[in-house]
Simulated assay, not measured.
Amino acid sequence: MARMSADDLIIRPAQPEDERELAALNRAAWSPLSDVSPQPPVEDGVFDERHTPDQFLLAVLGGRIVGYVRQVPPTPLASNRHVRQIQGLAVDGSARGRGVGRRLVEAACDAARADGARRMTLRVLGWNAPARRLYEGCGFVVEGSLAEEFLIDGRYVDDIWMARRLVG
């Protein structure tokens, strides 16, 4: 079988029928390097009243979901409507190193911009160097940090806040 290239990658909005495959990816991609919550149980889905399909963009390669990004308004406040926040990014191990994460982040920024957003923000664990490099490569800069915000596996970890302008 021919090796698929990043050109074969499709980025598309999630649909309700994607939930089972998306939940499996979410469980498989879980890591203490990137997650502050416990690994989701096998029976857990992804979608609920706060996590709706319209918030997710999926990366599909060869008909299989190999990544997702979730972006949402960070608060319900009218004064904050111009900001979106990435609140989830995962790439299947088999698709890493192919630019999938970068394509997802850029697609999320494009969608936010098209919806009138001027800024994209995110939070990343201080020890997650691969994610920080990805975000920096996509134009995000560190705007602040909360020292020792999380205790994970017996270690205190900083919460790094990053942002990128989406206009001018």
Rank of each mutant, 00 (worst) to 15 (best):
H51Y: 02
D54E: 15
F56V: 02
A59K: 06
V60P: 01
L61R: 06
G62N: 10
G63F: 08
G63N: 12
I65D: 01
V66L: 03
Y68H: 07
V69P: 08
Q71G: 13
Q71R: 11
A78W: 12
N80M: 11
R84S: 05
Q85V: 01
I86K: 00
I86N: 00
Q87E: 14
L89Q: 00
D92F: 00
G93A: 13
S94N: 10
A95R: 00
A95N: 00
A95D: 04
R96G: 04
R96L: 03
R98W: 08
G99I: 05
G101C: 05
R102I: 04
R103Y: 09
R103H: 10
R103L: 12
L104R: 09
L104I: 13
V105S: 05
E106N: 13
A108P: 06
A111R: 10
D115F: 03
D115R: 08
R119M: 11
R119Q: 13
R119E: 09
R123L: 12
R123Q: 12
G126A: 07
N128K: 00
P130E: 09
A131V: 06
A131T: 08
R132N: 12
L134E: 02
L134F: 02
Y135I: 04
G137N: 04
C138R: 00
V142Q: 15
V142Y: 06
E143C: 09
L146D: 15
L146Q: 14
L146Y: 15
E148N: 15
E149Y: 14
E149V: 10
L151V: 13
I152S: 12
I152M: 08
G154Y: 06
Y156W: 14
V157Q: 03
D159N: 15
A163W: 01
